[in-house]
């Protein structure tokens, strides 16, 4: 008998509900993200997008208010009862809306994650730092100032620095939360090119409030609204008039929000 070899989804979310105290931020979301896919989440403020990202790498453990129901599988493994949250977080690189450059040099910002996993050899670190900065399209601009503070870079450079830092974790899943909010259009386009290349090696979840950005990059797109997943589908289909829900159509066409 021949069994079809099924690909395990990188991420499986089943009936996810997120609460802060008694306030429900997200309810009943189910979705799957396949390996090497760019999956985008669009939706206005208060949709629950950031909250969704936070439970993926179990950052809820740092917030006693935050609770979730439902199941999340990463590489087919249930993350609910995971003891080693640190290993999970290392496999998921996160980029925040506003760049958070750690208070250290450009070099150390990128070398921190390898150091945390016990790599202390200078030559080895040099290689990692250069490769990550290259891939984040930042190397040429900072290669002469690796020893200056990360916070002295321009906003757009800092955002690429945080991407380089996320890449230094060698993540399987890269999560970006409205990364272009503080970045100029040119840098945004450069980062978008970077993401298209990174897709070959990792899975990407892209939360964005630029609807066109989702269209340019994402294989599939989900529309969140007030804590619900209204609709989800192939990006091109959603954008070419096949969206079923009127609210999705309105949002995509910029008619509310």
């Amino acid at each position: 008998m021949v069994t079809t070899t099924e690909i395990t989804p990188k991420l499986q979310v089943k009936d996810l509900t997120i609460r802060y105290g008694s306030h429900t931020a997200l309810s009943g979301v189910s979705l799957e993200v396949m390996p090497n896919e760019i999956f985008s989440i669009i939706g206005p403020a208060n949709a629950g997008k950031t909250s969704f990202l936070k439970v993926l790498n179990r950052m809820d453990t740092f917030n006693s208010e935050m609770k979730y129901d439902g199941k999340i599988f990463f590489n087919g493994l249930d993350t609910r009862h995971l003891r080693n949250h640190y290993a999970l977080r290392r496999r998921i690189g996160v980029v925040f809306p506003l760049p958070v450059g750690l208070p250290m040099t450009v070099y150390e910002n990128v070398a921190l994650s390898p150091r945390l996993r016990g790599i202390n050899n200078k030559a080895e670190l040099d290689v990692i730092v250069e490769r990550c900065l290259q891939r984040a399209a930042l190397w040429d601009e900072v290669k002469d100032r690796l020893d200056s503070l990360g916070s002295l870079l321009s906003g757009g450079q800092q955002q690429r620095l945080t991407i380089a830092r996320a890449l230094s974790q060698e993540p399987e899943l890269l999560v970006l939360d409205e990364f272009s909010i503080a970045v100029d259009p040119v840098t945004t386009m450069r980062i978008e090119e970077v993401l298209k290349e990174l897709k070959e090696e990792m899975t990407i979840i892209l939360v964005t409030n630029l609807v066109q950005q989702a269209r340019r990059l994402a294989d599939r797109t989900a529309f969140f609204l007030n804590g619900e997943c209204v609709e989800m589908g192939i990006t091109e289909a959603l954008f070419s008039g096949e969206a079923k829900d009127q609210r999705t159509i309105d949002y995509i066409e910029g008619r509310f929000g």
Partner: peptide, 24 residues
């Protein structure tokens, strides 16, 4: 935000304290 960024990378609380909080 520095602590959060560090935790997100998989650092333990102590690693975060040792590498980011205490030096600053």
């Amino acid at each position: 935000a520095f602590r959060e960024a560090c935790w997100n990378m998989g650092a333990t609380r102590w690693q975060t304290i040792r590498r980011v909080v205490l030096p600053n």
